[in-house]
Simulated scan of single mutants.
Amino acid sequence: MALQGSLSELSLPDVIQMVSVSGKTGVFEVKRSGEVGKIYLSDGQIVDALVGALRGDNAVYEMAIWSEGEFSFVPGEQTDNVTIHLSNANLMMEAARRLDEWRVLSRKIPSLDLVPFFTSRDQSDQVTLSPHEWILVTRIDDEHTIEGIADTLHWSAFDVSKLLFGMITSGLVALRSAAEGSSETTKGQGPGPVTLIGLASRIRAVALNVIGDSGENTIDKQFAGARNLIEQGAGIEAIRTMVEQHSKAITLLKGSDIAAMFDEQVQPLLGIADGAPVAVMNNQGGTNS
């Protein structure tokens, strides 16, 4: 008979630890709100795990923070895949650490089914964001839930929540329930002009670094055009257009290999996750999903 229970009564790390000590082979199946994850054990050692787009260690860590759902252990079911090489002790130690951290994050992010949106804070305030935070910013659209954004980016919901926690604390982002629906005052809002111009300046610096003195005037002209559009309220679309212009200019002056180098360096700043050239991504409608 399969071992089964509720995650609201027992944490997944505790249950896995109990089963692994017995040296069993089998699979944990974990279900929550339509999501299904699996964790495989071989002679008590965790060897593989998957949930959504995540596999291996990160899949275990993702399921470890689930506080709701059902689990069951089916003995005897095996897998040929070995994606986890950490010992059970180290794996569960990290899972427990993340669970503790999640308890802190959940004070501001009580559910992964909430929808993040930009607040109406003073748009003249400059916000300094890391490359990963910029990737996340490009995905916040007042429509997708935290879980949905994580799936789109192929990131763990835990990692997305860690980044959101700082944005919520600073007042840049707030959360609403999916049932509330977006409002006209929040829909489509994004970082203010000062922050966007700061991002444009970083991209300009990357372009100048790869194109050299021969293209400085062209790059500066394109940057000035983007800055003017941002000041008129064009938003991040002005930056995407500038990046496309930079990429084309670099191709003409330095060749496609150097342009590809530029594209690769600016992709993290724009949230382009699949490695396609920037100009191609823009021609296909940008990075929105």
Rank of each mutant, 00 (worst) to 15 (best):
V104D: 01
D151S: 15
S214P: 09
S72W: 02
K187S: 11
W155R: 03
I197T: 06
S111L: 01
A89V: 06
D43A: 15
A238Y: 02
R227E: 15
A96I: 10
Q245Y: 10
V21F: 04
T185Y: 14
V278E: 02
L172K: 05
G255K: 07
S161K: 00
L54R: 01
Q284I: 11
A259R: 12
W134E: 04
F118H: 04
A64D: 02
K31S: 04
A259G: 06
S177V: 13
I39S: 02
V280E: 06
E216M: 14
L270G: 05
A64V: 03
P131V: 07
S6A: 10
G285Y: 15
S161M: 01
M1E: 13
E77V: 14
E184Q: 13
L164S: 02
E216S: 14
L199R: 02
R240D: 12
A59E: 05
D274H: 14
I230W: 02
I203K: 00
L252C: 09
N209G: 06
A259N: 03
M63T: 01
Y40H: 08
N81E: 15
S161E: 00
I65A: 00
D213P: 12
K254T: 04
H246S: 10
L153E: 03
S214V: 12
M92A: 11
A53P: 09
N58I: 11
D125H: 15
S120W: 07
G171W: 12
Q78K: 13
V15H: 02
A95Y: 00
K187L: 15
G212K: 06
V30S: 00
D159L: 09
E9A: 12
F223K: 01
A64G: 01
H154S: 13
S182V: 05
G52I: 07
A259Q: 09
Q123D: 13
S247P: 03
V206R: 05
S8R: 10
E143R: 02
Y40I: 08
G171P: 11
P116R: 01
P191C: 15
G52K: 03
T83A: 12
V115R: 00
D100Q: 06
V243T: 12
L7E: 01
T251F: 04
K162Q: 11
Q284C: 06
G26Q: 03
L196V: 14
M63W: 07
L54W: 00
V210M: 10
T83E: 06
I135F: 14
A207V: 09
A174H: 10
G192W: 10
E143Q: 06
P13A: 03
L253P: 02
L114Y: 04
F223E: 03
P191V: 15
R202K: 13
V15R: 00
G192R: 05
Y61F: 12
P277G: 11
L153V: 03
E62M: 06
I65S: 02
G166D: 13
P13H: 04
A273M: 09
D57G: 09
L172A: 08
D263Q: 13
S247L: 05
V280N: 12
E29T: 05
G171D: 08
L7M: 09
L3N: 04
E29A: 02
D57Y: 08
N288M: 09
K31M: 03
T79M: 04
H85D: 10
A174K: 14
D125N: 15
I39Y: 01
A207I: 05
S182K: 13
K162A: 09
I84M: 11
R103V: 05
G5Q: 07
A174G: 12
S170K: 14
V194L: 15
V243W: 02
G215S: 11
V51F: 08
T241G: 02
S72D: 04
